[in-house]
Design a protein around this nucleic acid. Sequence first.
DNA 1: AATGAATGAGCCTTCATTCAT
DNA 2: GATGAATGAAGGCTCATTCAT
Lengths: 214, 214, 214, 214
Amino acid sequence: MDAAAEVFAEHGFRNATVREICQRAGANVAAVNYHFGDKASLYAAVLAELSRLAQDRFPSDAGLDDNATPRQRLTAFIRSFLQRVLSEDLSARHGRIMAREMVEPTEALDRMARDYIQPQADLLRDILRDLLPPGTDPALTRLCGLSIVGQILFYAHCRPVLQRLQPEGAFAVPELDRLAEHITRFSLAALDALGRHNATTPRGRSGTRPALPR
Amino acid sequence: MDAAAEVFAEHGFRNATVREICQRAGANVAAVNYHFGDKASLYAAVLAELSRLAQDRFPSDAGLDDNATPRQRLTAFIRSFLQRVLSEDLSARHGRIMAREMVEPTEALDRMARDYIQPQADLLRDILRDLLPPGTDPALTRLCGLSIVGQILFYAHCRPVLQRLQPEGAFAVPELDRLAEHITRFSLAALDALGRHNATTPRGRSGTRPALPR
Amino acid sequence: MDAAAEVFAEHGFRNATVREICQRAGANVAAVNYHFGDKASLYAAVLAELSRLAQDRFPSDAGLDDNATPRQRLTAFIRSFLQRVLSEDLSARHGRIMAREMVEPTEALDRMARDYIQPQADLLRDILRDLLPPGTDPALTRLCGLSIVGQILFYAHCRPVLQRLQPEGAFAVPELDRLAEHITRFSLAALDALGRHNATTPRGRSGTRPALPR
Amino acid sequence: MDAAAEVFAEHGFRNATVREICQRAGANVAAVNYHFGDKASLYAAVLAELSRLAQDRFPSDAGLDDNATPRQRLTAFIRSFLQRVLSEDLSARHGRIMAREMVEPTEALDRMARDYIQPQADLLRDILRDLLPPGTDPALTRLCGLSIVGQILFYAHCRPVLQRLQPEGAFAVPELDRLAEHITRFSLAALDALGRHNATTPRGRSGTRPALPR
DNA sequence: AATGAATGAGCCTTCATTCAT
DNA sequence: GATGAATGAAGGCTCATTCAT
């Protein structure tokens, strides 16, 4: 399973070959079929295992006590999410594989979405509800969540591009602490502003909202 | 090449098959090798052509006159970027292919990064420079750019997941206008706040900056 | 297709290998998939072709003119059926393959039954209707047909056993003429007797019918 | 061995898998090789065992006393043969396996022919000798025997086809009693007629024999 | 004595590529 | 100039068999 995780993370489900997995594991080609039935089941097993690992290692509420403020909870959420996505060790495979699932979904994605992603989405929604003023349009809450997640996943998806941009090295993925701090600060600033505005014009689509340029 | 663009956008380089391309083009299986040498060269040709097309069709300064404000320029940038990436329109193939390249780079990515992505990155950097106070740390400018691009590309990369989240339909990719408006508003709010703060403590790493929670 | 017919006749659909077919045909392993799509389609094509050949070469009404008597038509039916089943040349493959289909049916059997076997069954039924007295129970007509076909197909199915029985050679499949004559004579005798009896006790299940022993 | 008999009867030697056998027996995959050496030896063992069982269970002289008439003996022969071949009963496996061996012989067939089929053939020959007039050409006796066996085995071999013929259900394999009765009656009628005729023209190939049509 | 794990040969199929025409 | 036919490498999978325990 270790070898499988590596190869799947590297090539994706479809392009990973059982042969490479087995070779890297020092096992026979038939080993996968013997132990897991087929390639897809191995993949499912790997995904389940990695999800578990990632959740254990980087819980979304790392270091929070029961009376943590919403800002603290968002900070922890972003940081642990980034860790799961960026860390180079074992659980990094999880991020890579998830990224691939998003671009080229397999049947396994359904289960992942239900068991793994949905809870995260719910958690983030709850945090944002506490951060935004009561009565905020749920659609707006959702969009804010997606803006936050987008900032994070960007580093999981686009690393190859960042490495190729000039000036050389300037776009290397920043160290995790710096990154977590930035995304948190950027997002909190936006949420504060949107919340402030929204509080005065609850629900309504536009009204006195400061006009967008153009 | 038209057929190739379609198929590559749909399946990515590796999973696209020469057969499907030729079939869709009503041509012989050997046509690709005859006209382009091999599959990779066809891909390169398609990418070059699409880059040219995309630049023409969705210029990042769409509808702006020479004395557009930075806010207007950012608004236009976000909107045209989203269009390139999301529209189902023929000419959107470029965006889809690029998104795939980011997750699963081929040799073509080097050229793409240099010729196509880099100018976009430079353009965004220039806009942000104008939006943020003079003297802002270039690293921060960069991070802000990545936060904006991340929010946009998220919808290109993660659509399959969004479709699978509950409540059913609530996470469907919003219509482009709504999305562009949100991302613009979210980002401008963040930039304003970060700029305001940064203006008072130029350069310095932290200082009197309002402490992050935790 | 020639090689395929040979190999399928020899080993049956499932146990025939594409490799052997291609090797025997001096072609590449991928040839089957190129020309026919897959093994099953090749098999279907072979079956269709052989059916056509067999029908053409040994028509069930060989040598009959329009006012042939029922006895003459049964004679011709049995003889041509045996020819199709026993002849060692091309069309013999047809018999072997059909025999295998019966023991281990594939999806192709449905089509064969409908297009090839059913018409033969109908033809035989018509002949028997003319041979048996009017009012004969259709179920009896059917059983008589099966008795006749059974006698014929026996030589297609059980050749391997006949060759192994003592006295050596006594059970070799007799020459076709001798066999056709015997089966015809045996069956006509039975039909005459059953018809005679049945004519006196139409329909009824037993009655004055000569009691079966035991 | 019980599980093996089941699986071999169902799928034939080649298509039966050791895995299915062991699974059905609740044993380990290696059990076959451990206890019997290899698949072929297991098959041989099963066949030997089944032959013994079948002889015991469906004796060809079932219910006959010593002074049974030849007609009674033929009736019993046909009936027990049909039972061995058709019954879904556990001990019918032998018949099913034999039917398969005839179409797709394995090395085991030699032994089977010698030990099991030959005695049956001899028994039938003896019955027919008593039924046909003295001096009947042994070749004719043989052909009559094959005609009878052919009618019986037909139902063992061609069931899949019968199920596919129109009118729906009309060709379903009839219940054993009805079938045994028909085959017996059909065959006795034929034997009587052939015997009557043959008695007047002993040996001779044709002569005054009523001309076959055509 | 018996087994779970592992093996390697072989199967059908797919695909980019080549080649004779 | 262009193509239909053909190729061989590779992929996932099945299966009888072997082997260490």
